[in-house]
Design a binder for these strands. Structure first.
Lengths: 235, 235
DNA sequence: ATATACGATTAACAGCCTATTAACGCTCTA
DNA sequence: TAGAGCGTTAATAGGCTGTTAATCGTATAT
């Protein structure tokens, strides 16, 4: 996830050094690339010489205010998403921003969590970020692809449908790929209880999963005797 | 402009009669069609039996709160834009809403001007305003064409008329084509309740739909045992 | 008011699917 | 080497689904 974001360029215009530094840090920590400008003219020029997937504009700026910058940006690129930051919660400013076509409007002070969520949501909306946490439900397993939500295991044209139990178990193994996961954890997570018969039942499922995955010899569900299992997935 | 908007359906959930009435008026004056629900359960069912281009949800609701409604709606349609209304400007609520995937978050009280601007902006963003969102009710299903609004299923010259229930059910399957949709979601959306007999009733409808769709062998309504169904529509 | 038509629900039965249990043989470890 | 742990296959029971037919309820026409 983080690697994908590295390609996302954000133009950030803010004259408050302190806030500016913090916000830049926060965004960069999440893997975004951030160009930070201190005033409107600088921003306009940056926009002309680089391409951005998102613009975050403070409204109060020396030289040219955020609205003017936004209007300019809109002339150059009508679709790039724009977020305004404002110290005032004055409705007039808000409305002016919305009229220009702001995509979001955040009032200072804001929590970094809220800020990041808004940024992410906006990028998702505009299709820059891949949609929802769907990534979390698709696991590559060697030559296979395992789609947890759809309960299926895909290899080429072949789509093997899994039962709910099979899928739950396989998902846990994927979340711990190349690591040992104990029988207890598996049993408590998937079955909710840990006794002899449930354990034997799980062994039957492990057996099935091995069979399903047998067409890629590099993928293995190893047993760790007396402890649990370890699914080997080569990179 | 106003004429185009006539095709835009808005689901509005608000238990405050006074505010509800005003907002409905304001939106309708702009040419939108507004379905106003008073509580969450009602909204969920409305969503299952009609198609909306925008949902506006109050957070404080009797029965089910706005977040729950949103989560359900997201299960049925992952892309429909959602705006939350909230009396509290509490950051926690905001964050919760954004996490669920709200597209905007408006704090009461708000001016009608700001409100309308946000609605329009959101609709522009999602492209609903451009193409007069008529497509939303016509679904290609393999060789068939399903027209939800007209309750009919067309294959060549043959026009099969569907009942309302049949159409509602088929629509939901279409919205989730090639994806698993759970029995619970189908039942809550189409019937508004989820019990044994309603479930059996649904099975009868599924059986009918399969029969209607049997002339295209590439179209299948698969069962996902213990979970729900998955309609396969080849591209 | 009565008859009719239609759609939806309920009933009934058959068939299917799945998780579990049992059984047996093998492997690992103490 | 004994005993516990695991791999695998097969059988079973119980729940879930597919389908048809009967019944119920409501709207419509006579």
């Amino acid at each position: 996830m983080t690697e994908e974001k590295k390609n996302i360029n954000i133009l950030y215009v803010e004259d408050d050094m302190n806030l500016g530094f913090v916000v830049k840090e926060v965004l960069e920590e999440k893997g975004y690339t951030v160009k930070h400008c201190m005033d409107g003219d600088d921003a306009i020029q940056k926009f002309g010489t680089d391409s951005f997937q998102l613009c975050i504009l403070d409204i109060m700026l020396p030289n040219k205010d955020g609205f003017e910058v936004a209007e300019f940006i809109r002339k150059v690129d009508a679709s790039v998403p724009i977020i305004f930051l404002s110290a005032k919660s004055l409705s007039d400013d808000k409305i002016k921003g919305l009229k220009i076509g702001a995509d979001d409007y955040i009032t200072k002070p804001f929590s970094t969590e809220e800020f990041l969520l808004r940024v992410e949501n906006l990028l998702k909306r505009t299709g820059t970020l891949d949609n929802d946490g769907a990534d979390k439900d698709v696991f590559p397993i060697g030559k296979y692809t395992f789609n947890y939500k759809e309960y299926c295991l895909i290899l080429g044209d072949d789509i093997k449908r899994l039962t709910e139990r099979e899928a739950n178990l396989l998902r846990l193994l994927c979340l711990h790929k190349n690591q040992i996961i104990t029988r207890e954890v598996l049993l408590k997570s998937v079955w909710g209880k840990d006794d002899y018969f449930t354990g034997r039942s799980m062994d039957v499922f492990i057996s099935k999963l091995r069979k399903y995955l047998s067409l890629d010899e590099n993928v293995k569900i190893q047993v760790v005797h007396g402890i649990g299992f370890k699914m080997i997935i080569p990179n």
